[in-house]
Amino acid sequence: MKFAISSKGDGTSNILAQKMRSYLLDFELEYDEDEPDICISVGGDGTLLYAFHRYRGRLDKTAFIGVHTGHLGFYADWVPEEIEKLVIAIAKTPYQVVEYPLLEVIIRHHHGGKETRYLALNECTVKSIEGTLVMDVEIKGQLFETFRGDGLCISTPTGSTAYNKALGGAILHPSLPAIQLTEMASINNRVFRTIGSPLILPDHHTCLLRPVNDVDYQITIDHLTLLHKNVKSIQCRVANEKVRFARFRPFPFWKRVRESFITEND
């Protein structure tokens, strides 16, 4: 089996990553940063996001494992004290693969510009560089509303506990093939009106955002911040690809939600 390790870059994570690499090489596994079967992320959720985007071209071949060296992460279910147990599990035990849905974002431009396709593990956000964001929101090819406000967030189920939750969005179980559209400070008065609630769209529904004004947009894909000009439309839907996690033990999602937001770890 071939493996790679992605580290947060701090001293603790680097030491842990080097130790795991040494242990796994002792078990005669092959270190391969280009085409790993397993990528071990050492750090936090942000570290795993970087690893995901690094290997987004081989999601059907690379499975991810998270070791958290800081705060509890939704993608990292191992702690530093367990690395010997994890190394043995990787070397000796067949693992279960759990697949979760991703968000596909396609940005099209006016004047025949090249369209750009992105995959997001957590979310995509759209904001106007200047002033209020004004967007026509189409669902399944029909105009749903004209949004006016600070911005829009489109998240995956696994990303529903991140920025989406801070915006008042729902927490979705990561096994659900859906995306969620959440508003940022929408303008609602006698003239302008939006739904004012998060929308959860199944995998056979497409959400299309069409700019009303000719302005530049700040679009984020997970941790990546992009500036787009001459935007004709932003298409969002559940991607055909999925992210794969290697599981060696149960990973109860609702227990993780409770530990992260309600009570201390047991």
Rank of each mutant, 00 (worst) to 15 (best):
29 L>M: 15
62 T>A: 10
23 Y>S: 15
56 R>Q: 13
86 L>S: 08
90 I>G: 09
20 M>Q: 04
210 R>H: 09
133 L>E: 01
78 W>A: 12
93 T>L: 13
207 C>A: 14
81 E>W: 01
162 A>T: 01
226 L>A: 05
171 I>A: 05
237 R>T: 02
114 K>C: 12
27 F>R: 14
169 G>H: 09
236 C>T: 08
66 G>H: 01
162 A>M: 04
235 Q>H: 09
135 M>E: 07
86 L>C: 03
222 D>V: 09
213 N>S: 12
154 I>C: 13
52 F>E: 02
130 E>K: 14
43 G>Y: 04
170 A>N: 14
128 S>R: 03
230 N>T: 08
142 Q>D: 11
202 P>H: 05
71 H>Q: 14
59 L>S: 05
77 D>L: 07
224 L>K: 15
220 T>I: 08
210 R>V: 11
204 H>L: 13
134 V>N: 09
131 G>I: 01
22 S>C: 13
2 K>E: 11
52 F>Q: 00
146 T>E: 12
60 D>L: 05
65 I>W: 04
121 L>C: 02
240 N>W: 01
213 N>D: 15
2 K>Y: 06
95 Y>Q: 12
9 G>W: 02
238 V>S: 04
266 D>L: 13
44 G>S: 10
66 G>M: 00
70 G>P: 00
157 P>Y: 05
39 C>I: 08
148 R>N: 00
90 I>Y: 02
155 S>G: 10
1 M>T: 05
73 G>A: 05
206 T>M: 06
38 I>P: 02
160 S>V: 06
227 L>F: 06
189 N>M: 09
232 K>C: 10
117 R>C: 13
178 A>Q: 00
196 G>M: 13
7 S>Q: 08
121 L>E: 04
8 K>M: 04
248 F>P: 05
122 N>G: 07
148 R>E: 06
60 D>M: 10
115 E>V: 08
203 D>S: 15
102 L>M: 12
134 V>S: 11
37 D>H: 10
258 R>S: 14
80 P>L: 11
155 S>F: 09
167 L>K: 06
204 H>A: 10
74 F>L: 02
194 T>W: 00
215 V>C: 14
206 T>S: 07
182 T>R: 07
220 T>R: 12
124 C>F: 03
212 V>E: 11
36 P>F: 03
26 D>L: 12
150 D>V: 04
168 G>T: 12
33 E>N: 14
225 T>K: 15
221 I>E: 01
185 A>I: 05
144 F>I: 03
160 S>P: 08
43 G>M: 04
136 D>W: 02
112 G>D: 03
8 K>N: 04
9 G>Q: 08
